[in-house]
Amino acid sequence: MSRSDAADPPAAAPTVRVRLFAALREAMGWGEQQVTAAANPATPLELWQQLDLAGAWLAATGAPGGTAPTGEALPAGIRVAINQQFAEAHTLLADGDELAFLPPISGG
């Protein structure tokens, strides 16, 4: 099934395993939760807004973490992974997906 194909959405809003890391995890006080999306279909950006992660990110970093209710992007530096692969914020989520919000990477 193509992830970008919106023609065949699941009947119910997807439940996904949301994972947070590093500063974002500590700002929220949790690293992993099962979350049922508020709408169907659902995207990582919508889960970001549903879980109010923007407010926590702003508080943790002082960086502009908020998107307006009609915002169309995650804050700068925040990346998304679905099932442990980088993905776009507007990718459609499937039931059972593992969705991770990744704060700015600092490897090497």
Binding site: F21, A22, G77, I105, S106, G107
Partner: peptide, 25 residues
Amino acid sequence: ETIKHDAPFWKREWSSGMGEWLLGH
């Protein structure tokens, strides 16, 4: 360079008992 940008690692500096996450590479 690509590991710095695209491998999911996060660094926290510990100094005088306080930890601070680095926000970038």
